[in-house]
Design a protein around this nucleic acid. Sequence first.
DNA 1: ATGAAAGCGCTAACAG
DNA 2: CTGTTAGCGCTTTCAT
Lengths: 335, 335
Amino acid sequence: MTATIKDVAKKAGVGLGTVSRVLNNHPSVSEETKKKVLEAIKELDYNPNAIARSLKIKSTNSIGVMIPDISSAFYSDIVRGIEDIANKYKYNIILLNTDLKREKEKEALITLKEKKVDGILFISNTINDKLKKDFRKINIPVVLIATKDKNEEFHSVTIDNEEAAYKATEYLIKLGHNKIAMLAGKNDDPNAGIPRIEGYKRALTENKIAVREDYIFHGDYKFKSGFQNMLKIIKLKDKPSAIFAASDTMAVGAASCAMQHGFKIPDDFSLIGFDGIELAQYFYPPITTIKQPRYEMGAKGMEKLLKLIQGEEIEKGEVLEFELVERSSCKLKGD
Amino acid sequence: MTATIKDVAKKAGVGLGTVSRVLNNHPSVSEETKKKVLEAIKELDYNPNAIARSLKIKSTNSIGVMIPDISSAFYSDIVRGIEDIANKYKYNIILLNTDLKREKEKEALITLKEKKVDGILFISNTINDKLKKDFRKINIPVVLIATKDKNEEFHSVTIDNEEAAYKATEYLIKLGHNKIAMLAGKNDDPNAGIPRIEGYKRALTENKIAVREDYIFHGDYKFKSGFQNMLKIIKLKDKPSAIFAASDTMAVGAASCAMQHGFKIPDDFSLIGFDGIELAQYFYPPITTIKQPRYEMGAKGMEKLLKLIQGEEIEKGEVLEFELVERSSCKLKGD
DNA sequence: ATGAAAGCGCTAACAG
DNA sequence: CTGTTAGCGCTTTCAT
């Protein structure tokens, strides 16, 4: 049997209240009894039962992390940021994969409710109305990471996707390119989809380059869709000289396709990605990209959640800085 | 206030015991009262309190996952396997990063003990004696993933690293190579280090190729160490024609280095990696590698743990199959 | 400063 | 089949 507070009290010859007090180092305990208790604790190799404690104080020091897929490089970095901060403040994280499925989100939420987590971090690229309704009803602080709701009803930490896409496209334009294709996300993705397309278009328009819809290819951010869309691009009579991909993985898929067909990066196509995952860095040639501060998004999200839990008033939407990191996949047009 | 079982009982006009019974669908409840209770539950939007339940039944349906770093591609895939199985059996996972630091492992263990997890999954490439002692003392089932202890005192799921390295090296030999270098791990790493070096040496020896210590380069499995060791290799007067890397990330680092210096893969160097992470697949050229069944390791580990929790007798060490996946980074010697 | 007692929300044994 | 009761291990008044 594992020792309880009662055993400790008996051994130390004090009441249980006293043991509890030294455990939570309450001031009003004499040094002497404190010593006795500490000794008994050591002798019995006693560990407090967090479950019992939680039941009593109605707080678990656990937070729930809902994530599309922990095995995705983009998301796992976020979780690392979360865990580091959580750990620092003695919180633990319960991890649930949602696969972006409404059904799994729903189940996850029920679990989290039953397990009485003190807060929830919801990581995704989108949030649907039903889930919002659930979040509203539940009486647990929530912060969204890498997504936000239109009305800013919930707290969130994101980057400015439109602006980032604008900068990426502008970078290509400044390099002299005027035929710039985009490997985009989907038109119904309010975070990584639409805003990045809009930023791309705005950069073009502001620089007096006509937007060509036939230069926009929609994909799912994965390697294969980058590869396949690139297949279409290299078949174009009027080829672009530069490409902006809405994810590094698609960028790499496109690069692989191009190289496999005898083209060179950046000689034949300048290429800029999005996300800043390791893959882009380690690819050859290393891919220039918009780096999202993934670790910081997680860390910041956790910090916000902590404040919310403590009842502090904080700003709703936190927009973090992205960074354009130049590597070797882009060059001056015609250089 | 959130509703409790008591509220439900009152509303349904029954005793709390009855509510508890329908919650755990105990057979001995009449259809009629069951209906009443269910109705009350719905009306009150009641959710059972898992904390209270856990305190009573002394089981939390949570398991602890100790992992070096969730943001590492290799480990995050394992966790996905774990979570899928856990989820299937209504278990949740509490995630703790250890960074392979004894101090963090120790703290993690205390936390897990206090939170009363039903079991622990320890993922690492090594396990030190102090931790083993802690595991022994703690009264919670443990299974090791991707590592094992020498005496097989603990349950584990691994691959046969020596054999895998043997196969990788043999593959290169069969391609006609006899000057094969190795980008190895460290000599004090009992899992990914030593056995892979031994497998490499055995393949050489069995094929009557002399082992050259100057062809073995030690690294930390990361990109940079692959890159830097490759720098040494290309400066060798007597260059190898093939390289076996103990991790895909080092293989990719080596390939980048080689390509950056004007060498071609596989023309100038045949290259085989280890692990089977996405990076190897998406690199250009795609890297031939020994694929570890990471997802399965996690899933299998979780299944074993579940059995242990249920008190079943199971085999101690489970050795999973690896797979040599051929891609485009190797070619016949002199072809 | 400290002991005793109540109770967090639930399950399980007991009685009926 | 169902209501009542006694805890699970802890925190927190309330006395003393």
